[in-house]
Design a protein around this nucleic acid. Structure first.
Lengths: 152, 152
DNA sequence: GCCTTTATTGCAACACGTTGCAGTAAGCCC
DNA sequence: GGGCTTACTGCAACGTGTTGCAATAAAGGC
């Protein structure tokens, strides 16, 4: 099977050359994954990505998708994290790096940016010199609303 | 199959009555899981727990172990979290509640206690009123040694 | 001890991810 | 265009968790 020559939407059009520049190959399967990612806004779980790839190209094989995601992560085009239940989630670039916070009671979710993010980084950097991978930060707990509801 | 009457080691001896007091039942399968936990120091992954249960009682069924863990968690006897790869990990009580921090480069792991823990709690409590479940905190990044090694 | 109620189990099927391997095809050179 | 090298794919098998359902057995009352 040969790879379509049609243009990818920005900022993905240079991706094929990024692959080739590293000695990697640009294939039809990888194109499908990148097309799905290009149409994704911010986040996607692995399982959902596989589903969407299958919708676009019925012959998609899950293991190939997972391996393509690994390659894309090495190129810095996506970053993976884990949801509240530990399942994989991908952050699609060029969204700013951020973490996630989930309420175990109501299922709500929020992104961790700005001051919260800085406070988390500082908590581990100051004493331990540990550099936090913010994309991988998943905090579970109870949001203000659910705390209030329970304490009434 | 009937349940052994032999004493469980402290602080687990009251567990059967804790189950019954909630209208739950004390069974041979649950006893096996509790025996393994009683012999565990601090942490264990689900998979390892299943293995150890099978070593003790060859007929152990994984789904029963997972369901028993859910019941034990509702009773507050264990708390689950997720490792760096998202796989389940259990903290066995009465160890103090704590989080975990993993270095993606060297695979090292540390527990999050004391000031680090307080700083994480504060980061989310102050502005958002969010109560962090510390057992569920898994931070991934690079430790001081691996940062230094890379920046040479 | 026997009966009744219903929580729990065992099993089978499924969902999510990973890994090893032999065959295929992308990229490069001529 | 044709041939070579080797990255990549498809597949199959496995590991980790979850779920639905019929059969089993713990607890409690007699």
């Amino acid at each position: 099977m040969s790879v379509s020559r049609a243009q990818l939407p920005e900022p993905w059009s240079a991706v094929p050359d990024r692959f080739r520049g590293r000695g990697l190959r640009w294939t039809a399967q990888r194109r499908v994954v990148v097309e799905v990612l290009a149409a994704t806004d911010g986040h996607i779980t692995s399982a959902e990505l596989v589903d969407r790839c299958r919708a676009l190209e019925a012959s998609t094989i899950p293991s190939t998708v997972y391996r393509t995601l690994d390659a894309l992560e090495e190129l810095g085009l996506v970053r993976h994290g884990h949801g509240a239940d530990g399942r994989e989630e991908f952050h699609v670039q060029p969204a700013a790096e951020h973490g996630h916070r989930y309420c175990a009671a109501c299922g709500g979710s929020w992104e961790i940016h700005g001051e919260e993010a800085a406070a988390v980084r500082a908590a581990f950097d100051e004493a331990a010199g540990f550099e936090v991978d913010l994309s991988h930060v998943t905090i579970v707990g109870r949001c203000r609303g659910c705390r209030d509801a329970r304490s009434i």
